[in-house]
């Protein structure tokens, strides 16, 4: 006796037992539908963003070390970083101008407010954590900078990205460090540098196209100054950069072949929500 062919519906298959499995079972299963393979070059370029942020943090800490040991005149640092910032600002405004009218006065006002309040509060800052051991402060700074690195917005829309948390962590770390310095003026300088590094610099870097040459310049500069502080740290730094920029992208591209995303008729349809929530 021949049976009617099995069909995927719930009302026509009386002749088949309920646990019958047809050959068409899982035929609609699709694997890796939206999969775009990433080349090593893409991966490494993406990794440079992490390296850039790592360089920024290292540079910031180096400036702290120089100030703390009084190897350099605070004014000298202020002038240098300020002129670099001015240059960056000019590039940002002229080259990456989005067409809308910019309020130069508004920018100037922000700078003035920052300078006044920075000056006012730096006497509080530099004695803020006098009762706390320096080791604790350094550990705290390390942890906060780690938080900054983890939650920093590298341009990937992931749930973990949080600009505010990342920035707050960096500012908190800078306050910790500046409270170790000996004079309010030094503390003020360090806070200024911190704002330049963690607020303004990422804004500019966002606009610049990813490139390896920029990374090499950064790493060399930071590496050179780090060498004046500690040879061991320089080696660790270089090792970390290589790990981040070469080993990680390599592993990422290599393990892509194990990617196995399953799609099928059971997936929830995606609609554009009107109110932007789920």
């Amino acid at each position: 006796m021949t049976r009617k062919p099995w069909r995927k519906n719930l009302y026509e298959n009386q002749e088949y037992p309920d646990n019958y499995t047809d050959n068409s079972f899982l035929q609609e299963l699709k694997v890796n539908v939206h999969f775009k393979p990433i080349t090593f070059r893409d991966g490494a370029l993406g990794a440079t963003l992490v390296v850039h942020e790592l360089c920024t943090i290292t540079a910031f800490v180096l400036i702290y070390v120089y100030l703390y040991n009084e190897w350099i005149d605070p004014n000298y640092i202020f002038y240098w970083t300020s002129s670099v910032t001015m240059l960056g600002f000019a590039i940002y405004r002229i080259k990456f101008s989005t067409g809308e009218k910019h309020m130069f006065g508004h920018d100037l006002q922000t700078v003035l407010i920052f300078l006044v309040f920075g000056q006012l509060f730096s006497p509080v800052l530099y004695t803020l954590t006098d009762t706390i051991s320096t080791d604790t402060i350094y550990t705290m700074t390390f942890l906060m900078m780690l938080v900054h690195l983890i939650f920093f917005d590298y341009g990937v829309s992931a749930a973990i990205v949080s600009n505010s948390l990342s920035l707050s962590a960096a500012v908190f770390a800078s306050i910790c460090l500046s409270s170790r310095l000996t004079s309010p003026y030094q503390a003020f300088i360090l806070m200024t540098v911190s704002i330049k590094c963690f607020v303004l610099f990422p804004l500019l870097r966002n606009k610049i196209k990813k490139s390896f040459s920029l990374t090499i310049i950064f790493v060399t500069l930071v590496g050179y100054f780090l060498l004046t502080v500690s040879v061991l740290m320089t080696f660790i730094f270089i090792f970390t950069v290589v790990f981040l920029n070469v080993v990680c992208p390599f592993l990422f591209t290599k393990y892509q072949e194990y990617k196995d995303n399953i799609y099928g008729p059971w997936d929830e349809a995606i609609v554009q929500t009107i109110d932007g929530t789920e």
């Binding site: 519906n9 719930l10 037992p17 309920d18 646990n19 499995t21 079972f25 899982l26 609609e28 059971w266």
Partner: peptide, 22 residues
């Protein structure tokens, strides 16, 4: 439903002979 069976077999790795559609 049959879609439900496919889904359950995939996500819970049950032997498909042990799954009935009612």
């Amino acid at each position: 439903s049959y879609t439900g069976k496919e889904n359950t077999v995939l996500r819970a790795r049950v032997n498909k002979e042990r799954v009935s559609v009612i």
